[in-house]
Design a protein around this nucleic acid. Structure first.
Lengths: 248, 248
DNA sequence: CCGTAAAAAGTCACATTGACCTTAACGCGT
DNA sequence: ACGCGTTAAGGTCAATGTGACTTTTTACGG
């Protein structure tokens, strides 16, 4: 960056971090929301988040808010910066820009109430997309962009495994893809692809026996970040608003 | 976001935008740098950028700085947010976070000196990566992450065409890929892929005849944002630090 | 020791890919 | 007018990858 000697008009603004935390539970994609305890948007639901403190790293602020507001330990999930939202009118209190983080994790142990009295709870993403729930601020925009990004990342990266609790079965992993993409995949071809993708899955050698059927082999996440070859969705999936795809 | 009733420790920070502008010229990838006219880092080179003004959109600030410091009209290039850098120690003057933008454009009409006396100039990216040029602040980190992102985006999106001046030939487009990826591609297979990718290229029906050889057909950018199917690099290209891939 | 259900492995026609070759369309020099 | 050099563009073909589908394996519960 560069300071401008001429113009003095550079605002000092408040900076927040907001967390878009996705998980798959009960066969549907859920997002963690908190109920706001104060104005503005009191009583309305919003993404968890809060002010970045003096001298605090953005990533550190995200992890702290995650713990404070939801009781979740960030080391268990995949966390990455999504985008920064800086519309001057996005917060009625004044100029507040927010750095949004996207987090993907396994079904969590029932989000605890935060340090504040507000309670956090898992909400089906579908209810928000269909307009049955309205989010505070510009959080619905953040959610839509984050969802878009998550969907893209499933194709080209190994993040899908971040949704699974280790060790996991291939069927569980496939279930993630099916829920996030909203389509069904051929179990046999899916297995061939993911087991063939270098560094995606590490066989544990162990098996899990469910109530019924042949026991499934258990895997752990491999070291690969990128999926090669990518796990493409059938050629012409309708890609509404091609948006954000970030590889972390 | 959410205000925290308890803690008052939320800093008001200065926010800047920085621009990472890539172009391909003389067969090499170049980035636009300015020479700093003031402390800190006086005399050193840095990415163009500056403070976001009160009530100004982040995107608007990026476009304004682009014009002010480099004389480039933003409508001619592909501009998207890269990432926000918020290390509390990244600026010696105090807490300054910066929203970095990635811009890809055709070879520009010789970057003009900015409104300030500092002059802007195209610098080979290689010189920075090899340590022959040191950038101010954390700008080298921004450059490396932006380069990573640009490389990924070539595979899955149609941004490569943003490097070309319309109308352009397939050989020119291939040249972009070769320079950014640092490898050579089979001309015939490349043509088959890009002409087969739905919505990537629109034939103008016209041809350009160079000094020698058969005239090349001229194309314009198509409406597609995503490349389907993707234009994958040979399976196991060494992907140093799999980093950022954003689709815009 | 059978029936059932799910995992895992196999089959096969077909599409895509990478490597390579052939033809087309110029300008130029003779 | 013709061949040559050069680049664009189109074609060939074996190898590989993919999608749809079938078969085999391995558990459990009678």
């Amino acid at each position: 960056m560069t300071e401008r000697a001429s113009t003095r008009d550079h605002a000092r603004v408040a900076v927040t971090v907001d967390l878009l935390i996705f998980t798959v539970r009960q066969g549907a994609l859920h997002v963690l929301l908190i109920e706001r305890g104060h104005a503005p948007f009191e009583g309305q639901v919003a993404l968890p988040g809060g002010y970045v403190r003096t001298g605090e790293h953005l990533d550190a602020a995200a992890l702290r808010e995650l713990r404070e507001e939801t009781g979740i330990d960030g080391s268990r999930l995949h966390l990455e910066q999504l985008r920064t939202y800086g519309d001057p009118d996005r917060d009625p209190r004044g100029r507040v820009i927010t750095v949004a983080y996207l987090a993907l994790g396994p079904d969590m142990p029932a989000a605890q109430a935060g340090t504040d009295a507000r309670h956090a709870e898992w909400t089906p993403v579908k209810a928000i997309l269909e307009g049955r729930i309205n989010l505070a601020f510009d959080h619905e925009v953040i959610l839509r962009e984050g969802l878009e990004r998550a969907r893209f990342q499933l194709e080209y990266t190994t993040v899908a495994a971040a949704f699974c609790t280790e060790p996991f079965t291939i069927a569980e992993l496939r279930h993630i893809y099916e829920v996030v993409w909203g389509l069904t995949l051929d179990a046999s071809n899916f297995r061939r692809k993911v087991t063939g993708a270098h560094g995606f899955l590490i066989p544990t050698g162990k098996h899990r026996t469910q109530e019924i059927g042949r026991p499934a082999a258990l895997y752990r996440r491999g070291p690969a970040q990128l999926l090669s070859p990518p796990l493409l969705r059938s050629s012409d999936v309708h890609r509404s608003s091609p948006n954000l795809l970030v590889l972390h």
